[in-house]
Amino acid sequence: MTAGRTRGGARRAAWLPLAPVLTLYAIQFVVPMALVAVTSFRRHESAGQMGGFTTDNFTKILQDPYYLGMLGRSLLLAGETAVLTAVLGYPIAYALARGPRWLKVVLLVVVMVPLMTSSVVRSFGWMVLFARDGLFSTLAGPLGDGPAGLMYTSTGVLVATAHVLLPFMVLTLYGVLDRLNPTLVHASMNLGASRTGTFFRITLPLSMNGVVAGMLLVFATATSAFVTPQLIGGTRYRVAATEIYEQSINLLNWPLASAMAVLLVAIALLTMAVYTRLSRDTGGSGATGIIG
């Protein structure tokens, strides 16, 4: 049935299946993004009222230590979460890839259940744990910092955010570790290397790509983390995403919210660009690989 078609016609027809997704993206993604970009340059008159064009919103964010600190806190939280999930996720992924069958099943369940449970529910779970008479505070005893344990602290937000994003890290790492050719490991051990030596010389370096990919995925997601900082951090620990919500929903300062969002996205895209560049140099699968 494709017989009569010219080469050019076939080329053009080949684009047809892409039309729906591109249309959806254009209306539901490109337009709103553009709207935010434009809004970020509008002047905030009063709640919900916008005036002419200005760069004031960006100057305000970049010069006021309060807003700048909020962006910084978001980045710090994202960075710490990326490191923490990598450290915590690696042993799980390793056991998942190398462990006996029963352990695989147990770990898979333990990782999948949180992944499939809404982050609202999981943050709520941490709220209960962090409460004064919660288990965590009881166990931590005198070690618990401050009277209410980890509730409303940056450490508490970090722990809960790491928990929310850990499954993503584990699955990314597992994907890489599982694909590692076991013959390499066997060869190394046959050549007399210890198991641990093999791990540090073969397994870890070869899976580094996955670690970086996982950390970037976690970093990008954590920069816009909203629920956990909102619920665990409370009113006094504010990050960019919670402030965007506050400014856009409660204070109706849409230009300021938009400018913060633009800066947040710029940072996230920059991270991705660096990674794509990095992985191209090392022959990795690029930014799209992280979802795989």
């Binding site: 004064r132 008479d133 009277p147 209410a148 409303y152 409370g234 009113t235 006094r236």
Partner: peptide, 16 residues
């Protein structure tokens, strides 16, 4: 110590 948005949180903090 804390700044709460709502009465339920205040109740919890004062209560425990």
């Amino acid at each position: 110590h804390s700044v709460y948005r709502d009465g339920a949180t205040m109740t919890q903090l004062l209560g425990d």
